[in-house]
């Protein structure tokens, strides 16, 4: 290969290289590299955001579960309380009923007692009346003998037992 004048190609090559380097840098490399970088960044951001959204969703799901659990617990609590209240009310009612019944029984006992007393009193009165009439009759027959009469009376009286 014959070597030609070196300055010819060196001069033109340097000139064209510099001119086209500047042109390419301005009109091609910068826009392309920037666009590629921008796109890569936007993809990266999108991926990051998707991750974030996924995390958020997981968090929300966990929250939901928590709220649900709380609600359930609250319901259980309420049920428990209601049960207790029911129990309490029933017990109270029962106690009151007992009390009332006792009172009634007491009252009835008192009435019975007073009735009894009254009956006894009546009985006593009747007994005494009967006794008097009996005594009159017996006395009427036996009081011919004074001594016998007295003896009889004494015996009768001592026989009477006052409750």
């Amino acid at each position: 290969m014959n070597l030609t004048s070196p300055e010819t190609l060196i001069f033109w090559m340097t000139l064209f290289f510099l001119i086209f380097f500047i042109l390419l840098k301005k009109f091609a490399w910068k826009p392309i590299l920037n666009a590629v970088k921008e796109r890569e960044e936007s993809i990266e951001n999108a991926l990051l955001e998707a991750d974030k959204a996924r995390e958020e969703m997981a968090r929300l799901k966990a929250d939901n579960q928590k709220i649900l659990n709380e609600a359930r617990a609250e319901r259980d609590q309420m049920l428990k309380e209601a049960k207790a209240l029911k129990e309490q009310i029933i017990n109270k009612a029962r106690e009151e009923a007992q009390l009332e019944a006792n009172k009634e029984i007491e009252k009835a006992k008192l009435v019975i007692e007073s009735e009894k007393q009254a009956a006894i009193k009546e009985l006593k009165n009747q007994v005494s009346e009967l006794s008097v009439s009996i005594a009159e009759k017996v006395l009427g027959e036996q009081l011919k003998n004074k001594e016998a009469q007295l003896k009889q009376v004494e015996k009768l009286v001592s026989d009477i037992k006052l409750n």
């Binding site: 086209f20 042109l23 390419l24 009109f27 091609a28 490399w29 826009p31 392309i32 666009a35």
Partner: peptide
């Protein structure tokens, strides 16, 4: 080269 790259850009 410039044409290709300019069209690419």
């Amino acid at each position: 080269l410039f044409l290709v790259m300019y069209l690419t850009a």
